[in-house]
Lab assay of single mutants.
Amino acid sequence: VTTYKLVINGKTLKGETTTKAVDAETAEKAFKQYANDNGVDGVWTYDDATKTFTVTEMV
């Protein structure tokens, strides 16, 4: 189990959260659900070296 981080660069919501998951795919599903629940829709990137997902909403 690995800890993954999500950085949110939203128009109205900004911040970070973490989740523990067995792999990046599982973490991504959890983060996308979290973003969807919070009304964040944007471009996703993932950095495997730092285990960090970033979602950026276009203005």
Rank of each mutant, 00 (worst) to 15 (best):
V55W: 02
K51P: 00
D23F: 04
N36Q: 09
D23Q: 04
K14W: 12
G10A: 11
I8A: 03
V59P: 10
K32E: 03
N38W: 12
E28T: 04
K29F: 07
M58R: 10
T19I: 12
T3P: 04
A49G: 06
T56I: 09
T50L: 07
A49M: 13
T26W: 07
D37V: 13
V55K: 01
L13K: 09
N38M: 09
T52S: 04
V59D: 11
G39W: 05
Y46F: 05
A21R: 03
E16M: 11
T50E: 05
V40Q: 03
T12E: 10
D23P: 01
K20G: 07
V22E: 08
E57I: 10
V43R: 08
G42E: 01
T2F: 15
K32N: 04
N9I: 14
K32F: 06
V40G: 02
D47Q: 05
D47K: 03
M58Q: 13
E28V: 08
E16V: 12
A49H: 12
M58H: 13
Y46A: 01
N9G: 03
T45P: 00
T45V: 10
F53W: 06
G42C: 02
T54M: 07
I8Q: 02
T54S: 06
G15S: 15
Y34Q: 03
D48P: 11
T52I: 08
A30K: 14
K51V: 04
K51L: 11
V22C: 09
K51H: 13
A35H: 01
K5M: 07
G42D: 01
V1F: 13
Q33K: 13
L13V: 12
D47I: 05
E57V: 07
G42K: 01
T19L: 13
G10N: 06
V43W: 08
M58A: 13
V55A: 03
K11N: 10
W44L: 03
T56Y: 10
E57G: 05
Y34T: 03
W44S: 01
T12I: 12
Y34E: 02
A30R: 05
T56F: 07
A27R: 00
G15P: 05
Y46W: 03
V22Y: 10
A27Y: 00
V22I: 14
L6C: 08
N9V: 15
D37C: 09
N36P: 01
K32I: 07
A24D: 05
T18W: 13
A30W: 15
N38T: 07
W44E: 00
A27L: 01
G42A: 02
K14R: 12
L6W: 02
E28N: 05
G39P: 02
M58E: 10
D41R: 14
M58Y: 13
A21S: 06
E57M: 06
G15M: 15
A27P: 01
K20L: 15
